[in-house]
Amino acid sequence: MTGITGIVRIKERLIHGVLFLCALASVATTAGIIWVLAAESYLFFQELHLLDFLFGLRWAPLLEPKSFGVLPLVCGTFLVAGGALLVAVPIGLGSGIFLSEYAPSRVRSIVKPILEILAGIPTVVYGYFALMFVTPHIIQPLAPGTDIFNAASAAIVVGIMIIPTIASLCDDAFRAVPQSLREGAYALSATRLEVSTRVVLPSAMSGVIAAVILAFARAIGETMAVTLAAGAMPRLTLNPLVSIQTMTSYIVQVSLGDTPHGTIEYQTIFAVGMLLFLVTLTFNVIAQGVLRRFREAYE
């Protein structure tokens, strides 16, 4: 018997080790991302001062005279992501409140998967939708003379894309509020509106804020829809009706061309990628922090 236990023990150890290695794969991925971005960015910043990159007002790495000020790309990115929030927060939050506070469970079980379909549609499809429908049938009738490529159509489709993120995270946050709080408010003759907005919403506020920040981070990192809809014109503007360029669509533009490996143009995608990575990471960390710090614990 002892021999068998010995074999079993070795097998257990072996399995433990293999599983551990698989868990480490994710750490290796992070290390890989940081190493790749940092190594090429380092070469880039040997030729260009960091401050010139971060605060330069003109982005023209592929045209003469070359200029590597990233602010137009950052501006375009935030214009699209901010616009997306204007679309997604009312619809997502309203849907979340409806799903958790008003909808009967049967309606809920039908509506939630339908909303999830919106999240499952590939982003290139949203780009197509922006070009073929949103711009010609919504934006151009309202604002004649708008470019085919414009930030507004990108913001609208990215907004649609992140509705399910906000709706479903808000719904989760509302449902985590204990029923006893609602019943206490009803007992004081509060109406359903008052229960929703003055009891449930404040109690779930950390979840709602985290949902919005996470959705914002997703909008910043969104690539294909923005590349197709917003064009490729780096511009320092807040006008949503003209063509702009985001950080992500710049990276796509360079990788589509045949920029030779090792040139400073090639290194820009790593510098912009590094900035993109740091910005989205910051928002994700903030969202996790909000959830941890301000969560109302009920159990």
Binding site: A23, S26, T29, I33, R218, G221, T223, H261, L276, T280
Partner: peptide, 28 residues
């Protein structure tokens, strides 16, 4: 805890950054 935090953050990394990683590691 470190691994878990790491995975949560990786889930939020934009897909194009994975593309950059793939370009540098798998291709080059």
């Amino acid at each position: 805890r470190f691994i878990e935090l790491n995975i949560a953050n990786l889930a939020g990394v934009p897909s194009i950054v994975y593309g950059i990683l793939g370009l540098a590691v798998f291709i080059r």
